[in-house]
Design a protein around this nucleic acid. Structure first.
Length: 793
RNA sequence: GCCCGAGUGGCGGAAUAGGCAGACGCACAGGACUUAAAAUCCUGCGAGGUUACACUCGUAUCGGUUCAAGUCCGAUCUCGGGCACCA
């Protein structure tokens, strides 16, 4: 007999069929299983990337066997920086680089034996696709969700280009190492903040990892507080601040404005003018790196004062960069006694510190931020500070000094990029009519083919240098006009692609109502790195499309699964680290089934796992044992025995339960365990029956589709194993007739006892006492059915 | 700094609802088969202890609840992740 099963021959024979999805039967219930689509980078896939794709493939195949009409599509998120940078470095046009990379990815994805609906393939760079990316933007523009704003952008003075946030990690340009500075430029924004509450509240209905929901809600950052007005001395004006701690208001001894705050210039006294102007100047050009938390506070006094509305005391107005212009009102009341940052500031600049809450666990040289008893707070003295929050809020509202307010950390989305490789924003600037949307029937606005796609030194998009693109006529008045030259961010195309798959060739609408019945996505599989941005943007798009009646649901992804990474030598696999495991080598040596099974067996699917060259051997040995077991028993006639029946039903129950709980590593160990038991039973019974063998082959098919296909055929079955039905089990038959239970004295294990499944409690306890040689009085006798007897003496 | 999550043999890990800790696999050791090796099969494999049992200890540390704790509660330590001057 052959040493090992011939995985190469088997895989070559079945790979084509296994890559092809079964024909749809529309009467079946739908199941939409989606992978986060990849950026097709030039490096291709390594075994680390495969892990997520194996999960989704296993789920898809399992659901097929359960009788679902499974949609499992794949596409490519091909616009964006990685491709553009690769193209720039290698002097190849991004369109060409993209095409090559996609071909390579498709080949590799087919190579795992994954079943995808390739007829539904899409790419975000396809004009037929981005026509609709632009269309959604137009709708947002029409609804007033898209607007223009001057925004500071990361600017590298050496490269003289605008840098995306992800290109200035740690505050320096990733290309040349120069500390990035800020440059003010006109940007397109999307009003995602309008959806903040819905994005927050609807998290409740999602079957997502708690961690991801938490990250999203932290990102949205809703906080309840009061907006308070402080009258400015000698000005007929007031400063408004947002605070979540109105109970500390009597302790507010100074006011701080962000350097960008519009009121600053009006508040400057002549003697303070120069120093403040200088401070604002430096703060403005400061990079993110200098604004880090552990740095000492800086700031300057404006010369003006405002009045504390409760204490009536004057408060000096300062300017400091620890106050952010884009949160709250851009102004903060300084309460040094009860806020650590204000405390540090007051210490440094010698500002009055007034304590207004008496706490239990105060530490020296620290602000006390807890709750306690109110002091120095006029009529509120003696109250608990948590009550004072409400009471002072009401007091302020009654006198018109302030009102309740809700604030969010979530900011509007900077939506434009000064890059070539993205969707052109479909707007036209007309002298007379202002900004006009490109009419729907003129979509898509094609990205012009050009050789000059490098980032420019003006901070403008490369498209601005292409007159044929820029110059157009106004759709409203026909006068000469100019096109918007900024492009969309990479996120644009990925914010709605899941809607397009079921109907990706539709040229008249984003997707038909009928096709959209495949939505929402039942299972979304991908890396946790998209926990915030991509998922938040996709949810925002979906809610918007719900509002304009394109879709009927508000949440796109019912269930989310984040797979862990495969690491090698403690680090994420990457070419630069030289720790990449090439799937081709593994396939040649062990085959695709082994690689698939091993990538699941390695550890819990949601955690990072370490690749081990030695351990994969064990999975390969297992598949060989399984192959031999079935080959050796396939000629046998029906052999029935209670033991075989029990094993069959128990195995199906266990494996099904574990799959449904996403515990794939224990699914694989379960296969091994039951194969061992069945092998032993086969020796005792003299063989195995057909039903048991077929059952084994079907339940392993989603995990090891190649060997399963071969064995299915070998067992004399017609058609593909994936046309079979997932086996059911009979609960009664999963129960053992005799059970070994543990015997304890005082909670310590002292022996075991084999009992009959329906033996009465009294008999079991008395047999247990005999076994343990206890005949005197006992304090307590505990019997947990089918598990344990514990005698306390 | 704040907020999450996790700590189990030589290693990856298992333990569904508080009930025999270490399933399954790797590595290792011994044996069978073989002229020999590879492959395969069998046996052992937490620590101490014993000729062998018995017994004792053991799930990061300390304490608690319970007949019974890897699992629940409180404190501490370590590691991983997220946010980071958000008023």
């Amino acid at each position: 007999m052959e040493k090992n099963y011939n995985h190469i021959a088997i895989e070559n024979r079945f790979i084509k069929t296994l890559n092809t999805p079964p024909t749809h039967d529309d009467k079946k219930p739908k199941y939409y299983c989606l992978d986060m689509f990849p950026y097709p980078s030039a490096g291709g896939l390594h075994v680390g990337h495969w892990r997520g794709y194996v999960f989704s493939d296993v789920i898809s195949r399992y659901k097929m066997l359960l009788g679902y009409r499974v949609l499992h599509p794949m596409g490519f998120d091909a616009f964006g920086l990685p491709t553009e940078n690769y193209a720039l470095q290698n002097n190849i046009h991004p369109a060409v680089a993209t095409k090559e990379a996609i071909e390579n990815y498709k080949r590799q994805l087919k190579d795992i034996g994954a079943v995808y609906n390739w007829d539904n393939e899409l790419s975000t760079t396809d004009p037929k696709y981005y026509k609709w990316t632009q269309w959604i933007f137009l709708k947002m523009f029409e609804e007033g969700l898209a607007y223009e704003k001057e925004m500071p952008l990361n600017w590298c003075t050496t490269c003289k280009i605008v840098k995306a946030n992800e290109e200035v990690a740690d505050g320096v340009c990733d290309r040349c190492g120069t500390v990035a500075s800020k440059k003010m430029l006109r940007q397109w924004m999307l009003k995602i903040t309008k959806y903040a509450d819905r994005l927050l509240n609807d998290l409740d209905q999602l079957d997502w990892p708690q961690k991801v929901k938490k990250m999203q809600s932290d990102w949205i950052g809703k906080s309840f507080g009061v907006s308070v007005k402080f009258d400015i001395k000698e000005h007929n004006d007031a400063i408004e601040v947002f605070t979540t701690r109105p109970d500390t208001l009597f302790g507010a001894t100074f006011m701080v404005l962000a350097p960008e705050h519009p009121m600053v210039s009006r508040l400057l006294t002549p003697e303070q003018n120069t120093v403040v102007q200088e401070y604002i100047q430096t703060a403005g050009t400061k990079s993110a790196i200098d604004r880090m938390a552990d740095k000492e506070k800086t700031g300057v006094f404006t010369g003006s004062y405002c009045i504390n509305p409760l204490s009536g005391e004057p408060m000096p107005i300062w300017v400091a960069d620890y106050v952010l212009i884009d949160y709250g009102t851009g102004a903060v009341m300084g309460v040094p006694a009860h806020d650590q940052r204000d405390y540090e500031f007051a210490q440094k600049f010698d500002i009055l510190i007034t304590k207004v809450i008496e706490g239990n666990e105060e530490e020296p040289n620290q602000a006390y931020t807890g709750s306690g008893i109110m002091i120095n707070s006029g009529q509120f003295n003696g109250q608990n500070s948590t009550d004072a929050v409400t009471n002072i809020t009401n007091y302020l509202e009654e006198r018109g000094f302030g009102e309740k307010q809700i604030n969010y950390k979530l900011r509007d989305w900077v939506f434009s990029r000064q890059r070539y490789w993205g969707e052109p924003i479909p707007l036209i600037h007309c002298q007379k009519c202002g900004i006009v949307g490109v009419p729907e029937n003129q979509l898509p606005v094609l990205l012009p083919e050009t050789e000059s796609y490098r980032p420019t030194e003006t901070g403008e998009s490369p498209l601005a240098a292409i007159p044929e693109f820029v110059n157009t006529t106004c759709p409203k008045c026909n006068a000469p006009a100019k096109r918007e030259t900024n492009t969309m961010p990479q996120w644009a195309g990925s914010s709605w692609y899941f809607l397009r798959y079921p109907d990706c060739h539709n040229n008249d609408e984003l997707a038909s109502k009928e096709a959209l019945k495949n939505l929402p996505v039942d299972m979304y599989v991908g890396g946790v790195e998209h926990a915030v941005l991509h998922l938040l943007y996709a949810r925002f798009y979906t809610k918007f499309l719900q509002d304009i009646d394109i879709v009927e649901f508000g949440e796109p992804f019912k269930k989310l699964f984040n797979q862990g990474m495969i690491v090698k030598d403690g680090a994420k696999m990457s070419k630069s680290k030289g720790n990449v495991v090439n799937p081709d080598d593994i396939i040649a040596k062990y085959g695709r089934d082994t690689l698939r099974m091993y990538s699941l067996f390695m550890g819990p699917p949601e955690l990072d796992v370490e690749w081990d060259d030695a351990s994969i051997e064990g999975v390969y040995r297992y598949l060989n044992r399984l192959y031999r077991l079935i080959e050796e028993n396939r000629g046998k006639e029906d052999i029935e025995s209670p033991e075989l029946t029990f094993l069959r039903h128990k195995m199906v129950k266990e494996i099904t339960y574990r799959i449904d709980n996403f515990s794939f590593n224990t699914v694989i160990s379960g296969f091994m365990e039951y194969t061992n038991k069945i092998t032993a039973a086969a020796k005792v019974e003299g063989g195995l029956n057909r039903d048991l063998l077929n059952t084994m082959v079907i339940i392993i098919a989603p995990f090891a589709p190649f060997i399963a296909s071969e064995l299915w055929e070998g067992l004399g079955n017609d058609g593909s194993v994936f046309e079979a039905a997932w086996p059911s089990y009979d609960e009664e038959k999963t129960k053992e007739t005799t059970i070994t239970i543990a015997l304890q004295i005082n909670g310590k294990l002292r022996g075991t006892l084999t009992i009959d499944a329906n033996e009465p409690k009294e008999q079991i306890i008395s047999r247990a006492k005999d076994e343990l040689k206890i005949d005197g009085a006992t304090k307590k006798e505990i019997y947990v059915p089918q598990k344990i007897v514990n005698i306390v003496v």
